[in-house]
């Protein structure tokens, strides 16, 4: 792989430069210096933080989880090879995810799978985020307001940190329609900005927002169900 910093060889079609803002600078302590010194612990920490999401994101472009895992591992190879060439124009994390999405798209093409992000947007993406009876309809005097109560979640701290709830979230994200899954995994799972995700996935701001909105609503609904089950158990 050669050429641009994101490993694409050339600028990807539709790539929109992310506007630079003061908070958008690569953090001073990105771990980059430690990585360049060959610090294994820093590299292991980076792999722990990013690898699961990388597999999840690659999975949106390729045919199986096994191939997605290969793409993620190939990305680490590219990261190691190009670390000295990384200029820090984005955060290290954003750079790595750009390499990943470029690799995943290339692999998808090789698999003869359609790869533009728009092709990931299936009919399931358009499913409404809420059941139709969530809000009062137009015939009601409280039209557009909650028809069902939204009780506060009573979650003790230890439940918030429990593995069980972690698995609920993981399952909820993994069962989202592909485009929603990618956006939620990158925005909320990795705390990337809207601009970064739009550039990476070649998405408009408006589409990104709709996918995130629907995906988040489903993840929240999964947590809500878990909280209700928990309440019923007590």
């Amino acid at each position: 792989m050669s050429g641009t910093e994101d490993g694409s060889g050339s600028r990807v079609p539709g790539w929109i430069p992310v506007p630079r803002t003061p908070g958008d600078e690569a953090p001073a302590d990105d771990g980059l210096a430690r990585l360049r010194r060959g610090d294994q612990a820093a590299f292991a920490e980076l792999v722990r933080r990013l690898h699961p999401t990388m597999v999840r994101v690659a999975g949106g472009y390729v045919s199986s989880r096994a191939v997605a895992e290969e793409v993620a591992q190939d990305t680490w190879v590219a990261v190691i090879e190009q670390l000295d060439r990384f200029e820090g124009r984005s955060s290290l994390k954003t750079w790595i995810f750009r390499i990943l999405t470029n690799q995943a798209k290339t692999r998808g093409v090789r698999e003869r799978r359609t790869t533009p992000f728009s092709s990931l947007v299936t009919d399931r993406e358009a499913e409404p985020a809420f059941p139709p009876d969530t809000f009062f309809d137009e015939s009601h005097r409280w039209s557009g307001h909650w028809a069902q109560p939204v009780p506060a979640w009573e979650l003790p701290e230890d439940h918030l940190l429990s593995d069980e709830l972690g698995h609920v979230i993981q399952r909820a994200v993994d069962t989202l329609p592909p485009a929603q899954r990618l956006v939620v995994a990158l925005r909320d799972g990795q705390d990337l900005s809207a601009g970064e995700v739009c550039a990476m996935l070649e998405l408009s701001e408006a589409n990104q927002r709709v996918l995130l909105h629907r995906g988040r609503a489903k993840v929240r609904a999964a947590v809500s169900e878990y909280v209700e089950r928990l309440g019923a158990k007590v």
């Binding site: 060959g38 294994q40 590299f43 292991a44 792999v47 722990r48 933080r49 990013l50 690898h51 699961p52 999401t53 895992e69 591992q73 680490w76 190879v77 190691i80 939204v150 506060a152 979640w153 979650l155 918030l160 709830l165 972690g166 979230i169 993981q170 994200v173 939620v184 995994a185 909320d188 799972g189 990795q190 705390d191 988040r216 993840v219 929240r220 947590v223 809500s224």
Partner: peptide
């Protein structure tokens, strides 16, 4: 709830990486 749910999704990055994968990429590094 939405803020809590987003915060919890941020914890997905703490999933375990299979040891075989970790060993392989560390060796490459």
């Amino acid at each position: 709830q939405m803020r809590t749910s987003i915060g919890l999704t941020g914890r997905l990055q703490e999933e375990d990486v299979p040891q075989a994968v970790m060993d392989k990429v560390l060796q490459m590094f």
